[in-house]
């Protein structure tokens, strides 16, 4: 049974038909890269998976939990689905460690000591063991994004959604964030990445999903899709971005 299963999902923003019957199954441990033009619905799809946006038709399951428009169910869902944003969205009034600790403490009701140890462990894992007490404003973009990843991991999600998490970074800082993703893949984390990093998608991703006009236009194993794009739309997309 797939970990994430998206079934004929339609999403409208008012009159704007943004997702037009998206089908996608993601197995546990898979790394999926979603690519496509601006406006093709990549972010919208990710945001439907964790309930940040509601959709009008179709179904999404994470494990055996259905994604529904219901506060309580969405809060439960948030324990299985983590999300990292392009703009980090760290809490600026809290230190790196406090950012990581907040949710386990409030949502999972773990005690303070346990949360501190967890924060330390996770920040060390993303290479920020020396920045526990730093405030986001005093960290570089790459460091902030790694704190944000640690913050998501603190809830031990089954799948991590990443929406262009390196797009706001200076080029020299992209590598350190991608490196953390590689590490997560090795540990068996399921990742769904919306990305513009084609090399990363090809080398690290297991499977590529090309979205076009609100549909999954073409999908397949990463190396094949990049070497041998089938549809003219993907061919032209790849020729532009490469």
């Amino acid at each position: 049974m797939p970990l994430v299963s998206i079934d004929k999902v339609h999403k409208y923003y008012g009159e704007n038909h943004v997702l037009k019957g998206v089908d996608l199954k993601v197995e546990a441990g898979e790394v999926i890269s979603i690519i496509g033009r601006s406006g093709s619905g990549k972010s919208t799809l990710l945001r439907c998976i964790n309930g940040l946006e509601s959709f009008q038709e179709g179904a999404i399951y994470v494990g055996n939990q259905a994604v529904e428009d219901d506060e309580l169910k969405l809060r439960l869902l948030s324990r299985s689905v983590g999300m990292v944003f392009q703009s980090f969205n760290l809490f600026p009034h809290k230190t790196a460690a406090e950012n990581v600790m907040l949710a386990p403490q409030l949502v999972l009701k773990k005690d303070a000591e346990e949360c501190k140890a967890l924060a330390k462990k996770l920040l060390e894992k993303v290479g920020l063991g020396d920045k526990l007490d730093a405030y986001p404003a005093n960290l570089s973009g790459g460091q902030q994004q790694r704190v944000a990843i640690a913050r998501s991991l603190a809830m031990s999600p089954k799948v991590l959604l990443c929406d262009e998490i390196t797009s706001a970074l200076d080029p020299e800082l992209v590598g350190e964030v991608l490196h953390v993703l590689e590490q997560l893949k090795e540990e068996g984390m399921t990742l769904i990445l919306v990305t513009h990093e084609m090399n990363f998608a090809r080398d690290v991703g297991d499977r590529v999903v090309f979205m076009h006009q609100g549909k999954v236009w073409e999908t397949g194993a990463s190396d094949e899709v990049f070497a041998n794009p089938q549809t003219p739309e993907l061919q032209s997309f790849l020729s532009v971005v490469r």
Partner: peptide
Amino acid sequence: LPKGQWEACRTLGLT
């Protein structure tokens, strides 16, 4: 405040 603050909290499961 940026909308992202709310979204981060929702994503983490805060009430």
